[in-house]
Write a protein that binds this DNA or RNA. Structure first.
Length: 337
DNA sequence: AAGCGAAGCAACCGCGAACCG
DNA sequence: GCGGTTCGCGGTTGCTTCGCT
């Protein structure tokens, strides 16, 4: 990949730094195949490399090792990373141990460039893995998302829709007005509160989906599988191979907040898995008919089947829900007229 | 076509843990 | 137990590529 010398391709104490050349790679591979790795301090000298041992170790473990897996992370891998990160934090090497062929460095990079952004776009704190309830913080997430968007000059009528726009500009301006009033006169009633709250509650999210329904906390009628809003994605289109389900109609509507609580409460249950706020519960195989897909398989298919567009929509809906929650969470005394 | 900024990722650096004599 | 050395982890840097204007 790296062929021409760069500014960082310099020597210090006779030791080369910067990108590795194919010749250097080959020397390292040949030496390790012959003598094995370890003793990194003396390895470069013995292998005829003008590199420090540290650099050799890094090159081997992160790039040259034969069992390195290349290419995009699968949804399963992504899910595993999110799960493990929620428990372990930035313990990249420990997380890497659960993902064969992936290095800690690769996982760290993937987290910082992809997953963290996705969680932020949903209004979820990537450190605590909980919904952000601070309206100021949510606002800054929105602003950065919107202004970093390449489509910022061509906003859609609806947010989501797979083009990475996170929020309708009119809603963003309402939010900005609300925050501006709050900061200028924090103790006075904020007349923008109602505007914003009403807009958020009534905003058309996406046709053919009933996000509003998911905002209601309904009794949990099924423990088989829980999703934030099962109507959010069309099962017919995104899960062509799934169903019919045993027992017919699936009924597991529940609120996102409730889902989150369920996820928190069941962290120790190995049957529970989470993808951020998306939860699935695998019923024991004995309780499902062998002729039907069990809920675990269905859930995995759901995760797999979601397109980037559907995921963006899901992120946007999650964010709306979190804004709504953050508004409700505020001390209403100085907000309501 | 050129310029520019953002994104992605390989590689480096500093520090603490583990190891060894 | 102690000090020196080596190893490995996590944070950060900086180069390359990509995409937009």
């Amino acid at each position: 990949m790296m062929t021409k010398p760069s500014s960082s391709d310099h020597q210090k104490n006779g030791l080369k730094k910067g990108p590795w050349t194919p010749e250097e790679d080959q020397k390292l591979i040949d030496y390790i195949h012959k003598h094995g790795h370890g003793k990194w301090r003396t390895l470069p000298k013995n292998a005829g490399l003008k590199r420090c041992g540290k650099s050799c170790r890094l090159r081997w473990t992160n790039y040259l090792r034969p069992d390195i897996k290349r290419g995009r992370f699968s949804f399963e891998e992504e899910e595993t990373i999110i799960q493990l990160h929620s428990v372990l934090g930035n313990k990249w090497s420990t997380i890497a141990a659960s993902l064969p062929g992936r290095t800690d460095n690769e996982i760290k990079n993937y987290w910082n460039t992809h997953i963290k952004k996705r969680l932020l776009k949903m209004g979820i704190d990537p450190v605590t893995h909980t919904p952000c309830l601070d309206i100021q913080q949510l606002s800054s997430i929105l602003n950065s998302s919107l202004y970093n968007s390449p489509h910022v000059n061509h906003p859609p009528h609806h947010f989501g829709m797979g083009n990475n726009n996170i929020l309708n500009p009119s809603l963003l301006s309402l939010l900005t007005a609300f925050l501006s009033s709050s900061s200028q006169n924090p103790d006075a009633p904020n007349q923008n509160y109602h505007h914003l709250n009403n807009s958020i509650q009534t905003f058309p999210l996406q046709e053919n989906q009933s996000f509003a329904a998911s905002l209601q906390t309904l009794p949990l009628e099924s423990q088989q599988m829980i999703s934030p809003d099962t109507t959010n994605f069309s099962f017919e289109s995104s899960l062509p191979n799934v169903g019919p389900y045993e027992g017919g109609q699936i009924n597991y509507s529940t609120s996102l907040l409730e889902n989150h609580q369920i996820a928190q409460n069941n962290r120790s249950d190995p049957n529970f898995t989470t993808l951020g706020p998306l939860i699935s519960y695998s019923t024991p195989s004995s309780s499902t008919s062998p002729n039907n897909l069990n809920s675990s398989a269905s859930s995995t298919a759901f995760v797999k089947g979601a397109t980037e567009e559907e995921r963006d929509t899901y992120c946007s809906n999650m964010l709306m829900y979190n804004i709504s929650n953050a508004l409700n969470n505020m001390d209403g005394s100085n907000c309501l007229l």
